[in-house]
């Protein structure tokens, strides 16, 4: 015991350094973890405060989960979350890499810089602002797209109440926001590739296309794989802003815009059933956890240094 305190004292400066952060983790990460037990309770607020509310709420076992899985909701939100993220990952990867290669081949570096700066813009905008942008195109009576449709004599489309368009709209908006940023990141890696490789290929008479296929892409593959696996690890978590702001919280669209995160939030707001919403959140955390572990395991196999842990 004495040795233990001695160690504490010897490390006091370092301990002092981690202390603020550790307290933060404790309150904002570990306490909420304890709070997830309300997923097994019928939560009722108690005036004694936080702890009393949790401990005095009635246990209901798996009822909250039964509720989640008894309706179609669990299926819908899981499907939406997974499929959208899958589409974002695959299409995002193809487009970003293609754009990065394209940028690297451009002659005229000043223009290339200007293009890059333009492409980078969406990354810096909040989803609220992107939501306004989308509205200026999709508004039923004023939006640009319906006006263009009008020129061709087509009927205006009720964008915000017709679910069938939204899978495409959401994928488009998501790619619009992320491809520019990702391609610039890939471009940075392409710039790091040893030039002598290309020179050797050129001497062998390789065409431009062959150079891309046989040098650029293979040299990029570690970072591609790692970025992709990181994204796969997060596949159970949706981008709340995209799914909440861009469709303007329109009820008719829920079948294609509701993801786990928005479902949890709406559960809290419409029914006030904290236990049920927490159950949905816990379901996400558990499955998400498994996916992170698996994908990290795979990253480790490929490149030990890139693994998170």
């Amino acid at each position: 015991m004495a040795a233990f305190f001695k160690n504490l004292i010897r490390n006091k400066v370092m301990l002092f350094m981690v202390l603020p952060g550790a307290i933060w983790f404790f309150f904002f990460s570990y306490l909420p973890l304890v709070g997830t037990i309300v997923a097994f309770k019928q939560y009722r607020f108690n005036r004694e405060g936080f702890w009393a509310s949790i401990s005095k709420s009635e246990w209901v076992g798996w009822d909250n989960f039964k509720f989640l899985f008894s309706t179609n909701d669990a299926y819908t939100i899981t499907r939406n979350t997974l499929l959208y993220n899958l589409a974002f990952i695959i299409l995002g990867l193809i487009l970003s890499v293609a754009m990065a290669v394209l940028l690297s081949e451009l002659v005229g570096k000043t223009m290339a810089k200007i293009y890059q700066t333009g492409m980078f813009l969406p990354y810096f905008l909040s989803w609220v602002i992107v939501g306004y942008f989308a509205f200026s195109f999709l508004s039923m009576d004023r939006g640009m797209i319906n006006q263009i449709l009008g020129w061709f004599g087509a009927e205006p489309v009720q964008w915000y109440s017709d679910p069938k368009y939204w899978p495409y709209i959401l994928v488009f908006v998501s790619l619009w926001k992320s491809v520019g940023y990702n391609s610039v990141v890939y471009l940075a890696s392409i710039m790091g590739i040893d030039k002598s490789l290309y020179e050797a290929a050129m001497i062998d008479g390789a065409s431009k296309w062959q150079q891309i296929k046989n040098i650029t892409i293979p040299m990029l593959s570690p970072i591609i794989i790692i970025m992709t696996l990181l994204a796969v690890g997060r596949i159970f978590y949706a981008d709340f802003g995209l799914f909440y702001q861009v469709p303007r919280d329109s009820g008719t669209l829920y079948s294609v815009t509701n993801v786990i995160d928005t479902y949890v939030y709406r559960g809290l707001k419409t029914t006030g059933e904290i236990g049920m919403s927490t159950a949905a959140g816990l379901y996400q955390s558990v499955v998400g956890f498994v996916l992170v572990i698996v994908s990290n395991f795979v990253v480790r196999k490929i490149d030990k240094d890139s693994a998170l842990f």
């Binding site: 039964k66 509720f67 309706t71 909701d73 008719t252 709406r266 419409t270 049920m276």
Partner: peptide, 18 residues
């Protein structure tokens, strides 16, 4: 019927206003 009520509420959010 608390759980059914919660589910019904969720459905309402989806269809009612439109």
């Amino acid at each position: 019927v608390a759980t059914e009520m919660a589910a019904v509420q969720n459905v309402k959010e989806q269809f009612w206003a439109s």
